[in-house]
Amino acid sequence: MDLAFFGVQLLNGLQYGLLLFLIASGLTLIFGIMGIINLAHGAMYMIGAYLVYDLTFRLGNFWLAILVAIPIAIALGLIIERLFLDTLYKRDHLYQVLLTFGLILVLNEMQRIIWGGDVHSVPIPELFSGRIQLTDNLQYSHYRLFVMGVCLALAGVIYWVIRHTRLGIIIRAGAVNRDMVEGLGINVRTLFTLIFSVGVALTAFAGMIAAPLTSIAPGMGDSILITCFVVVVIGGIGSIKGAFWGAILIGMAETFGSVLIPSLASMVIYLIMAAVLLVKPRGLFA
């Protein structure tokens, strides 16, 4: 493996990892603070991509489409939290798992009813349609670099909020001991609504900016969900820092695993998860 090839794969791993982080960050927040295993998280990713596909063609502009799609995603999170999850907080975990599993079916079917079973795509926006030359015969889209930048910036913002704001203190405390936070007079119900909507918005946003890089097809969120759970478990449930490094680790592992040990490609991330859990049963940063 020569140096250029190694560098290119490093870039690929980083870009994939950063996108994974964006999806996994919402999942880990919801999981860690609300204690809810949101199985419908992947479906939200898919909804984000379909929204942008639909709105790009309606409005004729990708950026405008994202601007319109974000509030829709937040509203979707609000509705699901207030209407459905809210009634189940007092119940056993199993009910919440059942609910979010049911949501996968409902959202997938809604997607079929609204947008049909065809495969769609969104063109790469004009502004970033250029490419850089990585090696003599391999190019890299400007848009991929842009996505990396956005993911890094969002990671920075999330880190700042968690570390340096009052809300962040509550979130961190909530991840450690929810009852204590409630005991201190924090309105947990409002916190839950906020966390869930932000979590849904983050993954939907990931779907939106990933839309020009992928094909928009039914069930596209289902496979990414498993990978994101691996990220969350490796990083430590509820830890944003864990989600970040977990995502980078998995991004690199999938990228290098697929070219260095192709026969194990589909197992690599699970082997890593098993290894991490053996050494640190609660994940790397929890």
Binding site: D2, A4, F5, V8, Q9, N12, G13, Q15, Y16, V119, S121, T135, N137, L138, T214, S215, I216, A217, M220, E254, T255, F256, S258, V259
Partner: peptide, 26 residues
Amino acid sequence: QSYLAQIASDRPDAVYTFFAGGGGVS
């Protein structure tokens, strides 16, 4: 992405592929 980098470094004369649906488009 990682497979495309692999192909680029292998420098074959051509690539033959089978993917369907969303995979084909991607």
